[in-house]
Computed example of a mutant assay.
Amino acid sequence: MKSYAADKVRNVVLLGHSGSGKTTYAEAALFFSGATKRFGKVDEGNTVSDYDPEEIRRKVSISTSVLPVEWQDTKINFLDTPGYFDFVAESKLAMSVADTALIMVSAKSGVEVGTEKAWEYTEEMHLPRIFFVNQMDDENADFERTLADMRVKFGKSVAPLQIPFNDADGKFVGFINLIKRDARKKVDGKLQPCEMPEDKKDEVEVLRSMLVEVAAESSDELMEKF
């Protein structure tokens, strides 16, 4: 791994309820960035971050792991934290050195106690944060319900940057970037550009307006333009 200047290094702490997919997300970042050649799985006990025998046995994270990922011209240090409250000290220690927080939310379980705690901790530390709605491939996943739940719990400042879309059989296949108004779908395990589904175009404009309004409220100058 090459050397990086300080302005090219980011520390991102992964927070969320136990089982929301923090370790799997980190494993995906390692694999798709080329840092590893194998996509480890928690159930198989072969992930990079959960290496301790007790973690492998319990299938949960006990301590925080630092996972460096090189992406384009930036080094991103993902800090994979435990989800159980017994190890909250590990999470708070990781947050103290993080630039931003990525809060994982299960699309099938929605906002959980661990989600609310993660929000509270980031509020206390004034840490910038972004939600990642995970497990969209589960048959019980519901993105719209999860988004609505987050806006009720955490306020109208929560706005989507991307939304998922399904195929004719209702299976999750890709997502739409609301800022760029472009779509990508999964083909043979990789994302490829595609046409935006016709039945999503009106929804995209509504949600994009929501996003623009939230962004505008953060600046008087932007609000005047809005």
Results as ranks from 00 to 15, higher is better:
P193S: 01
E203N: 11
L67P: 00
T100C: 15
D43R: 07
D202C: 10
R145Y: 10
K200I: 15
T122A: 08
R38L: 03
V206P: 07
V60N: 05
E144N: 15
L178Y: 06
F226C: 09
L127T: 08
G189P: 02
A101N: 05
S20Y: 05
L127W: 02
S96T: 00
N46Q: 09
K156I: 12
A183L: 00
F132M: 12
H126N: 09
E195G: 12
S65I: 05
F143W: 08
K92A: 09
L93D: 09
K171P: 00
N77E: 08
D80V: 01
K117D: 02
G155N: 13
K200H: 11
A35K: 15
V214L: 10
V48M: 13
A118R: 03
V97Y: 05
R151Q: 15
D7A: 02
V133N: 03
L79D: 09
I163Y: 03
G45L: 12
L15M: 07
A6P: 03
F175Y: 08
K180M: 09
V60R: 12
T36V: 06
K22L: 09
M150E: 02
A168M: 13
H17Y: 06
T81W: 09
T122F: 02
V105M: 04
K92T: 11
K41V: 02
I62Y: 03
G45D: 01
S219K: 01
S65G: 07
R10Q: 02
M223W: 11
M136D: 03
D142A: 10
V69P: 00
S49C: 05
R58C: 09
A94Q: 07
F132L: 14
G110D: 09
M125G: 00
M125T: 06
V60S: 11
S91W: 11
